[in-house]
Computed example of a mutant assay.
Amino acid sequence: MSKPHNIIWHDSSITKEDRRKQNNHSSFVLWFTGLSGSGKSTIANTLAKELYERNIRNYVLDGDNIRNGLNRDLSFSDENRSENIRRISEVSKLFVDNGTVVLTAFISPFIQDREMAKRIVSEEEFIEIFVSCPIEECEKRDPKGLYSKARKGEIPDFTGIDSPYEEPISPDFTIYTNEQSVSEIVESILNLLEKRKLI
């Protein structure tokens, strides 16, 4: 989609660096990607609480929540899934500009869409976290009953069943929710952020 010629960008009187200085921490995106039921939202929200306790301003963007509002007009076709990720990426970029740490929990099944997200946000402020979990375990958990419906044909184009999930080729970090506890995973992510001097 081309950009209208009569739209002109206005620079803010307060910069991203100003907001980071006020917040006393950096801002970036933690992009959690993985199958439905892999534990993305659980990890993101547990980590968010820990960051909050450390006085680090953060916000969780969750796939289901976003589709209840901002992206309620989108279907689950490949084209609409890409548009879903594009919009989330733009929103994430705004949060980062506001000096906020963003935790996104989206299946985001396609590599090209996650690469697009990284370009929109900027590679330096984008950390891709692959939430690895065998589909058998995800189906076993099936917290929303989605796999069961998908197997019955009630949910078309369901990722992992009749729509592919493309695993990250070189994610910044991989967590294994079928092997590690939530607390262990959160601690490992915090260690990563501390090592990178982001918190």
Rank of each mutant, 00 (worst) to 15 (best):
A44M: 02
L103K: 06
L51G: 13
I85H: 05
E187C: 03
I127Y: 08
I127E: 01
K118T: 07
P168G: 07
S13A: 09
Q180T: 10
Y52K: 14
E139K: 15
M1E: 14
N65F: 08
E50I: 04
I155T: 03
E136L: 04
G69H: 08
K197C: 01
K49A: 11
E90M: 11
F110Y: 04
G160K: 01
D62H: 05
D78E: 06
S108C: 08
P109K: 01
E50R: 10
E139W: 09
R19E: 09
K3V: 03
S188R: 12
A150L: 03
S75C: 00
E123S: 06
I43M: 03
W9I: 09
R20F: 13
S2T: 13
F76Y: 12
E137K: 14
I169W: 05
G99W: 03
V131Y: 02
V102Y: 11
I161K: 00
K16P: 11
K16Q: 15
D64F: 10
S26W: 11
V29G: 06
S38M: 13
E115Y: 09
N58W: 06
I161F: 00
C138R: 05
P164V: 02
N98R: 02
E139S: 06
K3R: 15
K140C: 02
L74E: 14
R81H: 10
L35C: 15
R119T: 15
I43W: 00
R81T: 06
R67N: 09
N55I: 01
K144V: 08
E90V: 09
L74N: 13
S75H: 01
I85F: 01
S183E: 12
K93S: 12
V96N: 01
P143W: 09
E184T: 01
H10A: 13
N98M: 14
P109S: 00
E125C: 14
L35S: 05
D113V: 01
N98P: 02
E187G: 05
E125I: 12
S163Y: 06
S82P: 00
N71C: 14
Q112N: 15
D97I: 02
N58Q: 13
R141N: 10
G99A: 04
E154M: 06
N45V: 13
G69F: 07
K152H: 07
E179K: 11
E115A: 08
N45S: 14
T33Y: 02
V131A: 14
F126H: 03
E115L: 10
K197W: 00
F32W: 10
T46G: 15
D162G: 05
R87Y: 05
E79T: 09
Y147T: 11
N23F: 04
V121T: 11
N80L: 02
Y176E: 07
S13N: 13
K93V: 15
C133Y: 03
S163M: 06
G69T: 01
R67T: 10
E194L: 05
S92D: 07
G99I: 03
S148A: 13
T15E: 14
E53D: 11
N178Y: 09
L70K: 02
K118Q: 12
K40L: 14
T33N: 00
D73G: 03
L70N: 02
M116V: 11
